[in-house]
């Protein structure tokens, strides 16, 4: 598990450390680097995989703007022993500073070290875990778009391909597919079945059946919240989910009453044994702007990390580590306390 990430001159994250747990929910004003954190992990993945073709970002643009030739770096601190102590990724501006694409990617180096500072000979464990990092920023139109049946079935970063992923689950893991349908009935009782169509050769689309009727509602006719809940549920029930999942505002478009479903899906990923799943836990890092969503973590304030702008830097702090936090919170719901500003992480004038 990643215990923390150090950032150096990484866009707005000039010199800061983000503490992480099995589940981390990041809150903060706009421009405090929450999305940058998630992108940084994707960058780490693409560097480790030397994945220029799929890399959606310009590696050179990741540096804080006025840093000139300063080294840009990320240090991923691993818990436990199996991964050694840390993986350091840095960008040497003397190589590829003005070039984009593969050359600037080559200017990035990564090495993993064990606790005595020695470089780890086999990078495979680190590379495997980092290479599995996935960022999801679900978009209802992408989820609803019919997907092409491909050899590799996977959920796209925006939720594209959901129809083929669910269809494969129905064939390969019928129990999981039934569990998703059951959850769907609990959370969205107006629907009771997930159905598939083949609008053209090699293309799959999905629809939901209205409960107690034969009426099919195509994905394009479903609400944004319904589609995003379905994508989150599917992610939570995958037999082999990614090792680290980054979720950009998973609560977006979802009714406040359904936010508990989002939390349950996240906890299913993070704490599989509690749900009877026999697999490794997934580490989840999510961002949110919803006080209602934050409220749900009142019994686990260590899972909420607040991002605060301090000068030209950003500081991250777990709510549970704020001074006198229990006395300050009293009866106040966690989300309300955050909204009020007493926990930080709200827009300020400077």
């Amino acid at each position: 598990m990643l215990e923390s990430i150090e950032f150096h001159n990484f866009r707005v994250l000039r010199d800061t450390t983000l503490p992480l747990g099995p589940c981390t929910i990041l809150v903060g004003a706009n421009g405090t680097g929450k999305s940058t954190v998630l992108q940084a992990l994707v960058v780490a993945r693409d560097i480790v995989k030397r994945n220029v073709a799929e890399a959606s970002h310009d590696f050179v643009s990741l540096a804080s703007r006025d840093q000139g030739n300063t080294i840009v770096g990320l240090t991923l601190h691993w818990g436990g022993n199996q991964h050694g102590d840390y993986t350091h990724l840095n960008w040497d501006p003397s190589r590829g500073h003005t070039e984009k694409g593969s050359k600037s990617l080559k200017a990035w180096h990564f090495k993993s070290f064990i606790s005595d500072g020695n470089e780890v000979r086999s990078q495979e464990d680190f590379s495997y875990t980092i290479g599995q990092i996935k960022l999801f920023s679900f978009s209802a139109p992408a989820i609803a778009t019919p997907s092409h049946v491909q050899e590799t079935v996977s959920l796209g970063p925006d939720g594209a391909g959901l129809a083929t992923v669910l269809d494969a689950l129905r064939d390969d893991s019928p129990d999981r597919f039934s569990a998703i349908e059951q959850k769907l009935q609990n959370w969205l009782p107006e629907f009771d079945r997930i159905l598939f169509d083949r609008p053209s050769q090699g293309v799959k689309s999905l629809s939901l059946q209205r409960a107690g009727t034969q009426q099919k509602v195509p994905a394009t006719g479903l609400s944004d919240g319904t589609l995003i809940v379905l994508a989150l549920l599917t992610l939570a029930y995958l037999p082999e989910p990614p090792s680290i999942v980054c979720l950009e505002e998973p609560d977006r478009g979802i009714h406040p009453r359904l936010l508990r479903c989002v939390q349950d899906a996240i906890y299913r990923l993070c704490y599989p044994k509690e749900c009877g799943e026999d697999r490794e836990p997934v580490q989840v890092i999510a961002t949110t702007h919803s006080p209602y969503f934050v409220d749900l973590f009142k019994d686990h304030p260590e899972e909420i990390v607040v991002a605060n702008r301090v000068g030209d830097n950003v500081e991250f702090k777990r709510v549970s580590e704020q001074p006198n936090i229990q006395e300050i919170l009293g009866d106040t719901p966690l989300g309300e306390a955050w909204f009020s500003g007493v926990l930080g992480g709200v827009p300020t004038e400077s």
Partner: peptide, 18 residues
Amino acid sequence: TKEQLKIWTYGMSRPSLE
């Protein structure tokens, strides 16, 4: 603790709503 009570009641500390 509240967490201990949850484990005794539900067999886990983070049960789903269902």
